[in-house]
Design a protein around this nucleic acid. Structure first.
Length: 431
RNA sequence: GGUGGGGUUCCCGAGUGGCUAAAGGGGGCAGACUGUAAAUCUGCUGGUUGUACCUUCGGUGGUUCGAAUCCACCCCCCACCA
């Protein structure tokens, strides 16, 4: 049985760590309570947040206890790390609502049952702080010289950093001390950009006589263009909230990943054994093998976020539309996707919009308007450009005429298929 | 507090009275080629009842037939000095 630490390493989760030896020992002996911080600055998580969550999942399954910390207090300040400018300050109500949403989404990946995990909000202790006491007890242990040397601070020094933001890392460091004191938390995990803040926490804890505390960061995921991973379709985030990113689109996000990133993504975002991932992706794979591996990635990642049933449906829908990579099931895999009978493929699960039948009576509806109504284009101007560029399809036929009006007769069985480009598909249903 | 330099479209950045919805690059989208990939080439890249109109160059007023460009005041950022 491979140790969790080795598993984390093999899967590429380890980027920086305070002390590899100590951490390995810590994680391999007994149950360790660890924490990962989340900013409740949005009402939904997106794919970019997933890496730490997958690590939490892995660690929890190995018997460790995660603490998901919501930065209810620190979100009111804004972390300057990796930020060009100050964040907008949220109201307390917004933060509370976001924290609730976060908890619900987290519950799909890790068990939040009592004893197996904790869900805490740093507002619970940070809001009670007395300024003078805090300065004396905590502030006295920080060196401004050292803080100024921190990358995240240094880069902001040129174009301005407020005192408010400057305090962020002190508060985050204090979080670690509180969690260590109250929950016996010994480790912090986080993104690469959190290194400075995390080390500050470890240092503070040690200065305050708390032993055996460590931290470890995950690598920053970049796409082929060198941008933060998890954005697609016009630079939009891929959300875990189905109201923002339908399951089919979520599936497609993974299905359309870069060849070069495939093995890495399988390691991070699925639970398949590393050995199997290697077998699926190593060496010179042909198109069929690569595409099968992408199907597996998409299925597994979607199943984690939205459940097996939804993933299965997305797989069948996508396959029905674009074809299946391995319909005979000749490529061995432990993924449940192998058990799906591709003959049941259908297009029912395509993202659907319902529009009133009256819109299509008589003269009908201008195609550009329809594209907007279907959510395929943000504006009629953009829709018009798309059509002129030959990127719009009505029932799989390229729309040649910008002035085309869609009438009731274009629907068959009360439905019609609308595409923006080859991959963005919407089914329009008459109401 | 003083002096100087700045704030331009998603981002960087040109533009110092009309030819400017605003150069160039990045990003994004689409087309071709492919494997629902990458790379490459080509086109597009403010909005709108659909090509003529509307809105945009930190904010508010003003000069002018006409302002991103000139003037006044204000806000914000940077550098140096205190």
């Amino acid at each position: 049985m491979k140790s969790v630490y080795r598993e984390l390493q093999d899967r590429g989760f380890v980027y920086q760590e305070t002390d590899a030896g100590s951490i390995e020992k810590l994680l391999n002996t007994g149950s360790v309570t660890f924490y990962v911080g989340f900013d409740p600055t949005g009402s939904s998580l997106h794919v970019g947040h997933l890496l730490p969550i997958m690590a939490m999942r892995l660690l929890q399954r190995a018997g460790h206890v995660p603490i998901a910390l919501v930065g209810g207090a620190t979100a009111q300040i804004g972390d300057p790390s990796g930020r060009v400018s100050a964040r907008p300050i949220l109201t307390k109500e917004e933060v509370a609502a976001n924290a609730r949403a976060l908890k619900a989404q987290l519950a799909r990946f890790i068990s939040l049952d009592s004893g197996q995990a904790h869900f805490v909000d740093n507002a619970d202790w940070l809001c009670r702080i007395n300024y003078l006491d805090f300065l004396r007890e905590i502030g006295s242990r920080f060196s401004v010289n050292k803080m100024l040397a921190q990358d995240s601070v240094k880069s902001r020094l040129e174009d301005g950093l407020t005192f408010l933001e400057f305090n962020y890392s002190i508060l985050q460091a204090y979080d670690f001390v509180v969690l260590n004191r109250d929950y016996g938390c010994q480790m912090q995990f986080g993104g690469q950009d959190q290194w400075g803040n995390m080390v500050a926490g470890v240092e503070l804890a040690r200065k305050m006589g708390r032993e055996g505390v460590e931290c470890l960061t995950f690598p920053l995921l970049l796409d082929s263009a060198g941008k933060k991973f998890g954005k697609t379709a016009g630079g939009h985030n891929v959300w875990l909230d189905v109201n923002r990113t339908p399951v089919f689109e979520y599936y497609q996000f993974w299905r359309n990943c870069d060849d070069a990133a495939l093995a890495k993504l399988l390691c991070y975002f699925t639970a398949l054994p590393v050995e199997e991932i290697r077998r699926l992706t190593d060496g010179n794979k042909d198109a069929r093998e690569l595409n099968r591996a992408k199907e597996i990635l998409a299925y597994e990642a979607t199943a984690l976020a939205h459940g097996e049933a939804a993933a299965r449906e997305a797989f069948l829908t996508a396959g029905g539309k674009f074809g299946f990579a391995d319909p005979e099931g000749t490529i061995a895999t432990s993924s449940a996707v192998a058990a799906i009978d591709v003959k049941t493929a259908r297009e029912e699960a395509l993202p659907t919009v319902e529009l009133p039948a009256a819109d299509f009576a008589g003269e009908g509806m201008w195609i550009a308007k329809l594209m907007v109504a279907a959510g395929l284009c943000p504006s009629t101007s953009e829709a018009r450009r798309l059509i002129q560029g030959g990127g719009a399809y009505l029932n799989d036929q390229r729309v040649a005429d910008v002035a085309l009006n869609v009438k009731a007769g274009d629907f068959s069985g009360g439905e019609l298929l609308l595409k923006a480009g080859k991959k963005q598909i919407k089914r329009v249903k008459l109401q």
